[in-house]
Every structure is written in C-alpha cells, then in structure tokens.
Amino acid sequence: MNIFRLAADMTHLISILVLLLKIHATRSCRGISLKTQDLYALVFLFRYLDLFTRYISLYNTVMKLVFLGTSFSIIYFMRFHRVVRNTYDKEQDTFRSIFIVVPCAVLALLINQERSVLEILWTFSIYLEAVAILPQLVLLQRTQNIDNLTGNYVFLLGTYRGLYILNWIYRYLTEPHYRQWIVWLSGVLQTGLYVDFFYYYFLAWRNNQKLSLP
C-alpha cells in the first residue's frame, strides 16, 4: 500500500459519501444517473466475487463490503425511497447501458488473462468501470444548474482514477512482478473520459460560477 493508492481509495470513498450526503441532505437525486449507479453496482458485484475465494487483507475486505453496501443503498434510494425516487430525472437519463455492457462483455471474453469464469467476470468489471461514467456525463450535459455536491461527486470520481494511475506508476517502479496491461489501459481510458469535465469544473471554479457543461 502506497500513499497514492491510499489517497485514491479514500477519494473514491469520499465521492460515494458526498453522493449519499447529497441524497440525505437534499432528499433529492437530481442530476445523478441511475444508469451509472447500476453499472457501478454491477462492477463491484463482479469484481469482488473473490471475497469468497481469497483473503487479501482486512482493509481490502472491509473496503469491498463498504463499496458494495453503499452502491446498493444508493440504488435503493433512487429507485424506492418515497421522496428521493420522485427527483430522479428519468427522461434525461437516456444513455443506453446495453451499448456499453455488451461490448465490454465481448471484450472480456476475447481479451483476458485466464480462461476461467471468475477471471472473465473480473476482466468484464475492469472494462465496464472504464466507461460506466458515460451515462452520468451525458446527464450532466443535459442538467441546467448542476449543484455543488453533484459536481464535486463527479470531480472526486475523476480524481480517484487519476490517483490510481500514479499508484500504478509507483508500483511499476518498485515491484518487480507488477504488470497489468488490461487494468492500466482501461484505467487510462477511464481517466481520459474526465478530461473534458475537469476543464469545465476548473473554469467554473476559477470564475466563481456555477458548473455547467456545454
């Protein structure tokens, strides 16, 4: 565990807490894509199947359970909470998840490290996480007056991915057997998807204006 990895995980955790805070404090999930949240739940579900087969560390197990629990509770609020569900922008959240789920599944079947069910599902989760933010970015573009917590939620998610790249560089330089092209390429693509968002986020911050994506 290096400082970049720890910072990345904590940023990821804080991003989820910011989203939960938004939902609890404002009783609203306006501007949040349920499609992206569904995809993240799928990502965690398939990636953390090794909870049952391999013990890595207490930290690892606890974080996996926290990510699974929080992602499903967010979905619960958005789908079923008496008040919150009415604030979901269903008409605006139109991205077709199938267009990213199917290609990721095909890619995981074709390009993987090992022909086993667990490995292919794990690889699928890596590919899917890379593009799972797309419905959220599309929804943000359509949202007038993006609120602070939503903007910060997406900003923290992008920061978490950027910090993972620093973690990989560090590990590549310090651990002799650390090679993972599938993870690296997916991670770089994922971080790249945020570049546009970051640009407008900093522009809004510098000019002291509300964030909006053109």
Binding site: D50, M63, H177, Q180
Partner: peptide, 10 residues
C-alpha cells in the same frame, strides 16, 4: 504471481 498482484487493488 504477476497476475495476482493487481487483484489486491479495489
């Protein structure tokens, strides 16, 4: 072992 190391990530 090369493949296992990155599985300790989240």
């Amino acid at each position: 072992a090369g493949e296992e190391v990155s599985k300790d990530e989240l």
